[in-house]
Design a protein around this nucleic acid. Structure first.
Lengths: 148, 148
DNA sequence: CTATCTGTAACGATCATAGTTACGGCCGGT
DNA sequence: ACCGGCCGTAACTATGATCGTTACAGATAG
């Protein structure tokens, strides 16, 4: 299964979205976010670093620094997040190259390639239908203070 | 990404399908199949064991024993194989439970659950459109002796 | 200048995967 | 009845991914 980085990334962007709705200026620090996710600030910086390279967030060092969304929440789809955090293909081929002496071994990978792409694409297309704004809306249907 | 068991499982069922097309009686041994996949016979038995529990193949011990398909190749979808070999969910939630003190941490998992299910379902539905017969047909478009 | 952030390297703990050895059980052929 | 060849499965190991952690350099507001 897919690692938890994707889940954490969506969590973090949702946190930024909710925080911005309350105060568009105030940044969120790695430490604050880490408490919400129950992890280490370095893990947060690593994942938000991927988001930054994908243009989804921006960061500022120094005091009063921290993280901001860099796009409207309704313009960040879950597919964008997935692509930013996951560079591997969804399905793994054989670890060892199959036997070239067997017609099945020789051709199976090429045969599967297309089917795997279709399935992966269908999954991503479904993720593309939902945005961080949707997640934030669902999360904030129940009220509560924003605390770490 | 998904482990290679799924790929190997499809490979093995395709091998059984092609072998049966040449001789409906002759079983395929774990050792023969292992050579096609470039792995160990025990790995083959483990994966085909899952297929047997899912009713996709049958096995027979003793000399003249080995593995047979237990369904028509066009009645085994890639989704069937996926479900037989993969019991985990596609997306992983947080390792540590997120903070209950934060409205995002408190609600994010429930919010994501539905979206993740949709995406996983879309992927499986696409896999469900293809069968072992399709893969076997593609593999055998190029001829060749069936060798390990 | 200092305090407080980010950025990133480096290391370790934990876990999943899959390769390997070993051996018990089943069964066809002699 | 036995032997040989197959499956079934436990047990151990090697490898690699993941993620938590420490450490420290760089940036910047006050």
């Amino acid at each position: 299964m897919i690692n938890s980085r994707f889940t954490v990334a969506v969590h973090l962007l949702t946190l930024l979205s909710v925080a911005r709705a309350r105060d568009p200026e105030a940044p969120v620090t790695s430490e604050f976010a880490a408490e919400s996710v129950s992890t280490n600030p370095v893990v947060v910086r690593r994942i938000l670093g991927s988001m930054r390279r994908a243009g989804l967030v921006r960061s500022q060092p120094g005091p009063t620094g921290g993280w901001h969304l860099h796009r409207e929440p309704d313009e960040i789809s879950l597919r964008d997040v997935y692509r930013a955090v996951e560079d591997e293909r969804l399905f793994s081929m054989h670890r060892q190259q199959p036997s070239a002496d067997c017609p099945v071994g020789r051709n199976i990978q090429q045969a599967l390639e297309g089917y795997f792409q279709e399935a992966e694409h269908a999954m991503e297309a479904k993720l593309g239908e939902r945005t961080i704004a949707d997640v934030a809306a669902e999360v904030t249907r129940y009220s509560g203070r924003l605390a770490g």
